[in-house]
Measured scan of single mutants.
Amino acid sequence: MAAGGDHGSPDSYRSPLASRYASPEMCFVFSDRYKFRTWRQLWLWLAEAEQTLGLPITDEQIQEMKSNLENIDFKMAAEEEKRLRHDVMAHVHTFGHCCPKAAGIIHLGATSCYVGDNTDLIILRNALDLLLPKLARVISRLADFAKERASLPTLGFTHFQPAQLTTVGKRCCLWIQDLCMDLQNLKRVRDDLRFRGVKGTTGTQASFLQLFEGDDHKVEQLDKMVTEKAGFKRAFIITGQTYTRKVDIEVLSVLASLGASVHKICTDIRLLANLKEMEEPFEKQQIGSSAMPYKRNPMRSERCCSLARHLMTLVMDPLQTASVQWFERTLDDSANRRICLAEAFLTADTILNTLQNISEGLVVYPKVIERRIRQELPFMATENIIMAMVKAGGSRQDCHEKIRVLSQQAASVVKQEGGDNDLIERIQVDAYFSPIHSQLDHLLDPSSFTGRASQQVQRFLEEEVYPLLKPYESVMKVKAELCL
């Protein structure tokens, strides 16, 4: 049975990233139509530049190519590739079939990587351009969430054990800070992308030097003109047959890092959902379990974690691919890159769409948070109580021993009897502590235990987050809708 299948058929496997999760716009960027249309555009740009620099290419040939950029006979191309065992030459023939007058000058002087690699770089750039505003929107939604809850005390956790208090907004800023680093890295790697350009079979530009009869300047002009037509500021000066596969490492490393950030955020949300302090959106008709109707599973956060793990592992592909590119190139890269580049971007696209949807509907339960604080705060307040007693004339050592005994009794009630923490009640009825009984409410005010959390939130948002989001103001209103 021949390899390949009808990918629109229910009898043929289709990647869930495309069929179930990723956005239509990201799927289109990695589609065959987008790819092969870009090949034709690159052939047109090459012909236009070659004509401008004096090669015998007519206006009629150029116009014929322009008129057929979208006229792609995919069936013919597939048949040609089956016959020739070469995808680029299959599309040269297919393009030439609908451009008979231009057929002889299509791909003039070029090698397969002229269309293959340059198209990949265009796709990487455009895919990054799709991700950047999506990530900015996630940051914006979380920034709104953090600002609104900047002063809401909550129990902090280290080692997932109760620690000092923080605020809900401050905790959210930990998430935002990681995503801001990801946004900066995505922008950097996007701006650092260079075009492969017009380089020939081993990167020496020998074929173009021959076409222009040894004119170095025209060869350099050709490279520059096509690079500018493709919208790049610069091209690699040095290439082998391909652009260095280190570029793929750079791009997928940034995406993998984004995956790590999203995994951490969504894990926190899942843990908070278990504590009943916070939940992701839950639709009115949504079913959490087929057997347990009360369940409210954090399905979206779980999906993000599941896909983020996949995204983090994909960076190993370009690392290994770059390491086995012998001399000017081997074909070890080809099949692998067809999979890992598309999957990385479709996965990143999915987790950003999902995280935006989550961040637009996060639900906080202040009463649950308050109750958990009441359970733990008495123990945390013991040092403040000791200091207040010393100020009232008591002995630190005597007070410490009193607190120690009462704390152990209260802990026994919590752990052995399943009761509430009654340390404060014990202190309130103990005559030894009568000098500070009137101060206990103040000493137990949760806001006095959150330090500068709310001020940190305000400063972080104003100095770091809002300036970073400013270039994306025009796209901030787009909502994230999930079908599944």
Results as ranks from 00 to 15, higher is better:
Gly8Arg: 15
Pro10Asp: 11
Asp11Met: 11
Met26Glu: 01
Arg40Val: 00
Leu42Phe: 02
Trp43Ser: 03
Leu44Cys: 13
Gly54Leu: 08
Gln61Arg: 06
Gln61Ile: 08
Asp73Arg: 07
Asp73Cys: 09
Met76Ile: 14
Ala78Arg: 13
Arg83Asp: 14
Leu84Gly: 08
Leu84Glu: 15
Val88Asn: 06
Met89Tyr: 07
His97Asn: 13
Cys98Tyr: 14
Ala103Asn: 12
Gly104Ala: 14
His107Lys: 00
Asn118Cys: 12
Ile123Trp: 03
Leu128Lys: 07
Leu131Ser: 13
Leu131Asn: 09
Pro133Met: 13
Ser140Thr: 15
Leu142Glu: 06
Glu148Arg: 12
Thr154Glu: 06
Gln161Arg: 04
Ala163Pro: 00
Thr166Glu: 00
Gly169Pro: 02
Arg171Trp: 00
Gln177Lys: 04
Asp178Met: 01
Leu186Met: 11
Arg190Pro: 03
Asp191Trp: 09
Leu193Gly: 07
Arg196Leu: 14
Arg196Asn: 07
Gln205Leu: 06
Phe208Glu: 02
Leu209Lys: 09
Gln210Gly: 12
Leu211Gly: 03
Asp215Lys: 15
His217Trp: 13
Thr227Lys: 08
Phe232Glu: 02
Phe232Tyr: 08
Ile238Lys: 01
Thr239Ser: 14
Tyr243Arg: 03
Asp248Pro: 03
Asp248His: 04
Val254Cys: 09
Leu255Asp: 04
Ile265Tyr: 15
Ile265Phe: 15
Leu272Glu: 09
Ala273Lys: 00
Asn274Tyr: 08
Met278Pro: 02
Glu283Ser: 15
Gln285Val: 15
Ser290Ile: 01
Ala291Asn: 04
Pro293Val: 02
Pro293Met: 04
Tyr294Val: 03
Tyr294His: 01
Pro298Ser: 09
Met299Ser: 14
Arg303Gln: 05
Cys305Glu: 01
Cys305Asp: 05
Leu311Val: 08
Val324Gln: 07
Trp326Asp: 00
Glu328Phe: 01
Glu328Pro: 03
Thr330Ser: 10
Ile351Asn: 02
Asn353Asp: 12
Ser359Pro: 12
Glu360Cys: 07
Leu362Ser: 06
Gln375Arg: 04
Met380Gly: 02
Ala381Tyr: 09
Glu383Thr: 03
Glu383Gly: 02
Asn384Val: 10
Ile386Gly: 05
Ala388Gly: 09
Val390Ile: 05
Ala392Asn: 11
Gly393Val: 06
Arg396Val: 05
Gln397Trp: 02
Asp398Pro: 05
Arg404Ile: 04
Arg404Lys: 13
Ser412Gln: 13
Asp422His: 11
Ile424Leu: 14
Val429Arg: 15
Ala431Val: 12
Ala431Ser: 13
Asp441Val: 11
Ser448Pro: 12
Ser448Phe: 12
Gln458Met: 12
Ser474Leu: 15
Leu482Ile: 15
